[in-house]
């Protein structure tokens, strides 16, 4: 299955795939990032992240996704693995304040960055307003997509506030809160229990509070 010309999103093609990798990038070793820049396959790489305001020092297989780093290494299991392929949104976290699918990124790519997970938003005795609203509106059922929904919802309100348009924004320069906007922007978070209208109600509530 070696193929010289296969290429893909996010990657411009190098040369033919072969069995071993050669050490390269002498100059890159001196690149600004101070972490070890190179490792043999299977060897551990040191990664530093700031997770929910606390520094985390990890030794990771470079293959480790941010999601697995959180769940399996930091034991922050609030972030869920629904599909592991960017198809469901259950793994949504905030990195440097932006929501992403933590399953489709490597932890090592986020060296030195700040990650906020559901655990960082609030705890049972100190709920984030969005968490409170999800409870009040029954914005969940089985609970498995819920942390991702909540992380996404928090980011969605910020995106609307920042004037980022969406697919349903009629005039690209006039971005405003509406149910339709929230539905579109939340569509990357699938809820098979389908608490959708309740989730929208929860977000609407929090948006209203923030305006007030």
């Amino acid at each position: 299955m070696t193929s010289d010309h296969l290429t893909r999103r996010g990657l411009l093609q190098g040369s033919a795939a072969v069995a071993t990798a050669l050490p390269v990038l002498g100059e890159a070793q001196a690149a600004p990032a101070s972490r070890p820049q190179y490792n043999k396959g299977g060897r551990m790489t040191a990664v530093e992240l700031t997770v929910n305001g606390r520094e985390a020092h990890l030794q990771l297989d470079p293959r480790t996704t941010l999601l697995d780093a959180l769940r399996e290494h930091l034991h922050l299991t609030g972030t869920k693995k629904g599909c592991d392929h960017g198809q469901c949104g259950a793994c949504t976290v905030l990195v440097e304040g932006r929501r992403i699918n933590s399953c489709l990124t490597l932890a090592v790519m986020h060296e030195g960055e700040s990650v906020t997970t559901i655990e960082g938003l609030g705890a049972p005795d100190k709920l984030h307003p969005m968490q409170r609203a999800f409870i009040a509106h029954d914005g969940y059922q089985c609970g498995y997509c819920t942390p991702g929904q909540i992380c996404s919802a928090v980011a969605v309100l910020e995106e609307i506030e920042a004037g980022v348009p969406s697919h349903v924004t009629r005039d690209l320069d006039k971005v405003a809160f509406s149910d339709a906007e929230v539905r579109e922007r939340m569509s990357g978070n699938i809820c098979r229990c389908a608490a959708y209208p309740n989730i929208i109600a929860a977000i609407r509530d929090v948006a209203g509070e923030e305006k007030a």
């Binding site: 299991t77 705890a123 049972p124 999800f134 609970g143």
Partner: peptide, 17 residues
Amino acid sequence: DRIDGPAKVTGTAPYAY
């Protein structure tokens, strides 16, 4: 409101994995 709500919305409800 669901009594398991706080655990679910904070990600502290433990699932099998």
